[in-house]
């Protein structure tokens, strides 16, 4: 009768189920050693740093005996490999230890911060990616025209403006001078979708989204302009396709490169921005990291860095799998 022809011209690649499954499995397995390596680096970096975390919390008058007891209590007296493996085996079951400063479990502190950062970066992703894609596509399609130059100038400005500086300027204009929007913190207790809550997002989201918007716009422009120069685009025109159909072909061809850039930006945003979260006193991972660094709160620092790096590992994995959905050539041995 009739061959099983994938999902046709608009859809994703017709997926050869077994092959895609194998690829996904392989890719997930590859992530395990990467994750272990990342955890080792997280652990070691903090131990290579000079200074002793116990000195930071113990009173200056503490006797050497007390210091030794504290060290033993936190396990700092054991050899590095032993410390690493005991930390790792605890981490795997979700025990990130206890914060030295607050005495509360690291996991709880982290969970709150991660949720807050995810909310903020979710907004920044939405704004930054939409603007970046829009500007980049317009520029790529009109390469060399005034529209392209305007979009590119905007993108370069976006990349060049330090986001904490932009944050401060926004605060001065919209919070201090005009009192239209709050300068700091999150909406306390207000329902999530209410203006009382969302208004807290406006300024930090703008400050955070400008750099990813610029970076994405530039790489979309480059990729789209490059794809449009390829010979198959001429074939599409020779087929008599409408500009919209040609656009779909161009975008699907550009997708893998764009996913890679967006994945990276997503990773950065998920990590929270120490500077922007500090400017807006946003209780996210960046803010937490900042606190942990200045108080030399080793368990908290290790846990936070580990979780943030794991975001990267997971996002990379997701990007790789998504790329294979768009481009059949990627899924190879």
């Amino acid at each position: 009768m009739h061959a099983p022809v994938g999902r046709g011209p608009t859809g994703l690649a017709p997926i050869n189920g077994a092959r895609m499954f194998n690829y996904a499995l392989r890719r997930i397995l590859y992530s395990v050693p990467i994750a272990v390596g990342v955890s080792l680096v997280c652990f070691l970096l903090l131990h290579i740093a000079p200074g002793d975390p116990i000195d930071a919390i113990a009173p200056e008058s503490a006797s050497p005996q007390l210091l030794a007891e504290l060290r033993a209590a936190y396990g700092f007296d054991r050899s590095l490999p032993v410390q690493y493996f005991s930390w790792l085996s605890n981490v795997i079951v979700g025990d990130f230890g206890t914060s030295i400063m607050t005495g509360r479990p690291v996991l709880g502190e982290l969970a709150n911060a991660v949720v807050n950062t995810l909310l903020l970066s979710g907004g920044a992703v939405l704004v930054g990616f939409v603007f970046g894609l829009l500007l980049g596509t317009i520029a790529g399609y009109t390469a060399g025209s005034p529209a392209d130059r305007a979009a590119t100038a905007f993108a370069v400005a976006g990349i060049s403006v330090p986001n904490y500086w932009l944050g401060l300027v926004l605060v001065v204009i919209f919070a201090v001078n005009q009192d239209w929007l709050p300068a700091m913190g999150m909406g306390q207790g207000a329902p999530f979708l209410s203006w009382a809550n969302l208004r807290h997002f406006v300024l930090p989201v703008i400050a955070l989204s400008v750099i990813p918007a610029g970076i994405i716009a530039r790489s979309v422009r480059g990729t789209v302009a490059e794809v449009r120069k390829q010979e198959f685009v001429q074939t599409l025109h020779a087929k008599g396709l409408s500009p919209f159909r040609v656009f779909i072909h161009v975008m699907k061809n550009s997708a893998p490169a764009l996913l890679a850039v967006m994945g990276l930006q997503l990773g950065y945003l998920m990590g929270g921005s120490i500077l922007v979260e500090t400017v807006f006193s946003w209780p996210g991972t960046g803010f937490l990291l900042n606190t942990a660094i200045f108080t030399r709160d080793l368990p908290l620092l290790q846990g936070t860095i580990l979780i943030l790096s794991m975001f990267f590992v997971v996002i990379n994995l997701v990007v790789d799998l998504a790329q294979a959905l768009f481009d059949p050539r990627i899924e190879r041995n």
Partner: peptide, 9 residues
């Protein structure tokens, strides 16, 4: 090779 769209069947 280059005249067919590489990501469509």
């Amino acid at each position: 090779m280059t005249s067919l769209d590489p990501v469509f069947t």
